[in-house]
Design a protein around this nucleic acid. Structure first.
Length: 405
RNA sequence: GCCGGGGUGACAGAGAGGCCAUGUGGCGGACUGCAGAUCCGCAGACAGGAGUUCAAAUCUCCUUCCCGGCUCCA
């Protein structure tokens, strides 16, 4: 069974965007494709040949690594060490075993494009150089990619681009560590991978994002479900604080407007993020912030304005991390709302498949009434039954809060 | 073999000379009818060995283990 390369790549691209959208990954400005950059690629290959940095051989074009001034400046590799290594198999068409293809002659049946050197296709690396030049110019500020691409891919991109442009190619390299399973890189060939869908079946996009943001992007991140569970619980701490502040579930309208706290936290947060995107430390700052805000709230010293300000900080944090907002809203039923309902009415409401918000509020009020009468059997029955219908309730000093799971 | 990056408390994971990481879990306390949430407190760590320094998880050297890369393909 065969499938057209273009059909396959379209499927994969569609899947990719679908997953990224679910994970709330913001779209880039442009998504260039090698197949749409073919003219620029050929022009670059030709330019390299004209400059004597590359040569044609049997319909392929190879880059002359020996002519490069700064071979290995990214990876620390040197040509002589490489040649001494055991795994290099000199291709017959190459003048030097370390030379790499910038254009490959087509083999029969392969997808190909017409070029000055005959039918062929781009070598690996060259499309990145060409697309960078076309869309971003000779020098780009940041180039990302996995650590597994440092050598040879990024190294060769530098060689090609700098030879062609006579300009520094990249100012900052950001190499992300691999996602690992049992300490090994997740990869298709090792078959130790799983699909995002499988993860999302069990964890919300927010939890997955939070899990990833809990590690330094440069280091490998070990995937296992207990770590996701940890992330879930840890994230709830932040979400709880956010939800309660948002619901104005504060004990009293105190004096503290949290002005200083909110200024300091943002300053600390930015300092951490400015340090090579240290999201882990930035999150630690948010825990301290949430704890302090909760403490002010518990003491009754936080003002309504302060609660709003705290919410503002959480909002700002979330405009970057996008992990806080949960589908369900937290609702507060103040203590004074206690209202008696007769048993039949309670049972009728509880027996509904979906309990409307208004009925939930009344049931919570009825439970408060029952608790006052120390009729804990009724109170617990309401709580348990609501839980079965997906409504969680919690008693606080301010009243009872409830939300749908 | 060579080039990179690492080995941090039960677990996850920051930090890169002196000061507390943080989270989950554990233990104790406050609150509570109970549950949960929240707050307060406690325990517990820097792979091993030498060195530099008044001071090292952080710098140097050695040893050891792990991961990524080193033909083609992306």
């Amino acid at each position: 069974m065969s499938i057209e390369p273009t059909t396959l790549s379209k499927q994969i691209i569609d899947d990719y965007f679908r997953s990224m959208d679910v994970l709330k990954v913001v779209r880039a400005t442009a998504y260039p494709r090698a197949t749409e950059t073919m003219d620029d690629i050929i022009e670059m290959v030709d330019g390299l040949v004209q400059r004597g940095m590359a040569y044609e051989s049997n319909g392929s074009v190879y880059f002359s690594v020996r002519k490069a001034k700064e071979y290995g400046k990214l990876s620390g590799q040197t040509l002589d060490q490489m040649v001494a290594g055991a795994r290099i198999d000199p291709g017959e068409d190459k003048r030097d075993p370390m030379d790499f293809a910038v254009w490959k002659a087509a083999k029969p049946g392969e997808i190909s494009w017409t070029s000055p050197w005959g039918e062929g296709r781009p070598g690996w690396h060259i499309e990145c150089s060409a697309m960078c030049l076309k869309h971003l110019g000779k020098t780009i500020d940041i180039h990302g990619g996995g650590t597994d691409l440092v050598f040879p891919h990024h190294e060769n991109e530098i060689l090609q681009s700098e030879a062609y442009n006579d300009a520094q190619f990249v100012r900052y390299w950001m190499h992300n560590g691999m996602l690992t399973i049992d300490e090994e890189k997740m990869s298709k060939s090792l078959k130790n991978f799983f699909l995002i869908d499988a993860v999302l079946a069990k964890y919300s996009p927010q939890v997955v994002r939070f899990f990833i943001l809990n590690a330094n992007y440069r280091h490998p991140l070990e995937y296992d479900s207990s770590s996701l569970d940890d992330s879930k619980k840890a994230l709830e701490t932040l979400q709880n604080s956010y939800d309660e502040m948002k619901a104005h579930a504060i004990l009293a309208d105190g004096r503290d407007d949290a002005g200083r706290l909110c200024e300091d936290v943002w300053c600390d947060f930015e300092t951490k993020m400015d340090d090579d995107f240290n999201s882990r430390d930035a999150i630690a700052v948010m825990y301290d912030f949430a704890r302090e805000a909760n403490r002010l709230r518990n003491e009754g010293s936080l003002s309504m304005k302060g609660a709003d300000r705290v919410v503002g900080v959480f909002d700002r944090f979330d405009s970057l991390f996008d992990v806080l907002v949960s589908e369900s809203q937290l609702n507060l039923v103040k203590e004074g709302a206690a209202q008696a309902l007769n048993e039949a009415e309670i049972n009728r409401m509880l027996s509904q498949d979906h309990i409307p918000d208004g009925d939930v509020e009344r049931l919570v009020g009825a439970r408060q009434d029952a608790r006052k009468r120390r009729d804990f059997a009724t109170a617990d029955n309401i709580r348990n039954s609501l839980a079965e219908k997906g409504v969680d309730i919690q008693d606080t000093q301010e009243g009872t809060v409830w939300k749908r799971k």
